[in-house]
C-alpha cells in the first residue's frame, strides 16, 4: 500500500469492504437452504487477512479511527489513551475480547459437544489460539445469566441455526476495545455473529452494538479457510513482568484532554484530514467522499 500520498486505493478498499458486508448478507439470505440443515463447522480454521490487512496484521496506527462508527465520548477516551498503559502489569496479559479477537493473527479450532445418549447438540466449542481462549456457544436454549453475573473476555454465547447460518448472540463481555489503538468498547456491548460455511471457507460476520461508545453498530467480516494440516502456534503464554521499574505506585499513563501527541502522525503520513481520521459513523459510508473532497482541498491549500 502506498503511504506517501493519500492512499485513495486504501480508502476505497476499506470502504468497499464495509459495503461488501451487507451485500454478502443479502446473497447469503437468497441462497440459504431453508429448514433445519445444520452445518458441521468442526475443524481447524486459518484466517485470510486480505480484508483490512493493515489494521489486522501490522496493527492500527495511533489516532486512526477512520471508518468506525464511534461517538464523541469514545474519541475522547481514545485520545486520552497513552500506549504506555500497555506496560502496566495488569494490562500486559489483557485479552482481546470476543468482539475483536477474530481480527488479529489467530487460528480457530471448532468442535461440537453432544449429549452422549441422545447426540443432541449441547454446545459448539471454539479454541482460539491468540491468548488461548476457550469459547462455548450454548446450543441447548439456555438463557443468558443475570446482569449481575461476572463478565469475561469471551462473554456468554448462545447460538441458533438460521438456515445453514449459525447465528450467535454474546453478552457479558468485559471492557476491551473496538480497535487496538485505544478505542474502547464497553462492558455493555452485545455481539451478534453469523458463521457461514461454504465448503472449505468460513465467513464470519460480526455486528457489535455498544450503547456506550458506538453511535451505530460496528459490522465487520473475516474469512477463514479449513486447514487440514494445522500445526504449531496454538499457544499464547503470557506472564507479566515489570516493564517500567520506577513508575510511582498508582500512576496510570494518559494524555490530558487536547494533549495527545500523536494526533497528527497518521494524518500527516497519509495526507488525510484530521476530521476524517477522528472517525464517526458518517466516515463509514461512500457519501463521505463528497464531504472529504473539500476537506482535502482545504488541507492542500493550507500546505501551499
Amino acid at each position: 500500500m502506498p503511504t506517501t500520498s493519500l492512499s485513495e486505493s486504501g480508502m476505497d478498499n476499506a470502504l468497499r469492504s464495509r459495503i461488501a458486508v451487507p451485500l454478502l448478507l443479502l446473497l447469503m439470505a437468497l441462497f440459504a437452504t431453508p429448514a433445519l440443515a445444520q452445518v458441521d463447522l468442526s475443524g481447524a480454521w486459518t484466517p485470510r487477512y486480505h480484508e483490512d490487512q493493515p489494521e489486522r496484521i501490522p496493527g492500527p496506527e495511533l489516532a486512526d479511527y477512520l471508518g468506525l462508527p464511534i461517538n464523541e465520548e469514545a474519541r475522547q477516551w481514545a485520545l486520552s489513551w497513552d500506549p504506555s498503559r500497555l506496560t502496566m502489569q495488569e494490562h500486559q496479559c489483557q485479552v482481546h475480547t470476543v468482539a475483536y479477537i477474530y481480527r488479529g493473527p489467530l487460528q480457530v479450532r471448532i468442535w461440537e459437544e453432544r449429549e452422549p445418549d441422545t447426540q443432541q447438540l449441547i454446545a459448539i466449542k471454539q479454541y482460539i489460539s491468540t491468548y488461548e481462549q476457550d469459547r462455548t456457544i450454548w446450543m441447548d436454549g439456555r438463557p443468558h445469566p443475570p446482569d449481575y453475573a461476572a463478565h469475561t473476555w469471551m462473554g456468554f454465547s448462545t447460538g441458533k441455526w438460521e438456515g445453514d447460518t449459525l447465528t450467535v448472540t454474546t453478552t457479558h463481555i468485559k471492557q476491551g476495545w473496538h480497535r487496538r489503538n485505544g478505542l474502547p468498547s464497553s462492558d455493555q456491548i452485545t455481539l451478534t455473529e453469523h458463521f457461514i460455511r461454504h465448503g472449505n471457507y468460513l465467513t464470519h460476520v460480526s455486528v457489535v452494538n455498544d450503547p456506550i461508545f458506538l453511535a451505530e453498530p460496528l459490522i465487520k467480516s473475516q474469512n477463514f479457510v479449513l486447514n487440514d494440516t494445522a500445526s504449531g502456534n496454538w499457544l499464547w503464554p503470557c506472564e507479566y513482568v515489570e516493564e517500567i521499574a520506577d513508575r510511582p505506585a498508582g500512576a496510570v499513563p494518559h494524555y490530558m484532554p487536547g494533549e495527545n501527541p500523536f494526533v497528527n502522525e497518521f494524518v500527516n503520513r497519509h495526507g488525510i484530514p484530521v476530521e476524517a481520521a477522528m472517525g464517526g459513523p458518517e466516515t463509514m459510508y461512500p457519501e463521505y467522499q463528497r464531504k472529504l473532497k473539500p476537506l482535502l482541498e482545504k488541507m492542500r491549500a493550507q500546505k501551499k
Partner: peptide, 9 residues
C-alpha cells in the same frame, strides 16, 4: 517451562 514465547510450541 511450558510454551515459551507466542508463535511457537
Amino acid at each position: 517451562t511450558p510454551n515459551v514465547g507466542p508463535g511457537a510450541n
